[in-house]
Design a binder for these strands. Structure first.
Lengths: 132, 132
DNA sequence: GCATTGTACATAACAGTGTTATGTATAGCA
DNA sequence: TGCTATACATAACACTGTTATGTACAATGC
């Protein structure tokens, strides 16, 4: 049973940075493992491409949010491990704040929508839930 | 007391479509009013630019998610009103599913992060503030 | 021995989209 | 008259995911 949900490009773009930083906040990791971790964490609903991830990692490195090092696994393969920096942790917290602000707003409208059954033109019949 | 939170570009892009469609699902509206509605719904934390909104509306119209008509208000101003179509409602539902899938994933990692305090990682000494 | 798959990283061309700046037009108010 | 708010539109630019491609090696199967 595979049910990969097609996540649109913009949503991928918006979540890639906080997702990668959060994964690296758990523990140091490398590209290929991050791809698998995303699938894991999403319950198989998200599937990232490597062509999208590596530029993200390079950008984070350029911005000083992560640091990279080469390592060689027992398997003999070379891997590029990434470690989140303190600046990266600060960025993660900021990304999280922003995401939650937008999420609270969206949930507010959605809840109002599901409350008001559009009979003709209910307009904004339902009182809006105030997030904060 | 104004505390507009700077929302990054990608997050704006990811939320603009579901936000506009949801607002139009409440009632027909027009550009300028949508801008104000977003500020309202976000509790003043979000501030959209018109240079970003109008292309969004034009795109939604092109895709058949909304329909537009000109109207003249009592004030004498002409306004371009938008109405969500049935295809737009379907799109809204889909956008909502995607958003919630990504949101659930992000919340999962964030929760795991605030639970586990990685010893041997002094950088993460400060526990992340728990939003929700 | 050889082909296939999985692991592992990297980059280029392309398309979509927000930002910023700019333009047009009118109503309301001082 | 001048300023602000209302109201819509578009262009140049930068950023970023998609898709395709390339390199390299380990493990597996035939």
């Amino acid at each position: 049973m595979r049910e990969i949900m097609e996540i649109n490009k913009d949503l991928i773009a918006a979540s890639s940075t906080p997702m990668v930083l959060a994964i690296l906040a758990e523990e140091d990791s490398y590209g290929y493992a991050i791809l698998q971790r995303v699938r894991e964490l999403s319950g198989g609903r998200m599937e990232w491409t490597d062509g999208m991830l590596y530029p993200v990692l390079h950008r984070l490195e350029r911005l000083g949010h992560v640091e990279a090092r080469w390592e060689v696994a027992e398997s003999g393969r070379r891997r590029r491990y990434y470690r989140i920096t303190s600046r990266g942790r600060a960025q993660l917290a900021e990304e999280r704040r922003q995401w939650q602000a937008v999420d609270a707003t969206l949930r507010g409208i959605w809840r109002a929508l599901s409350l008001s059954v559009p009979a003709g033109h209910p307009a904004s019949a339902a009182p809006l839930p105030q997030g904060a």
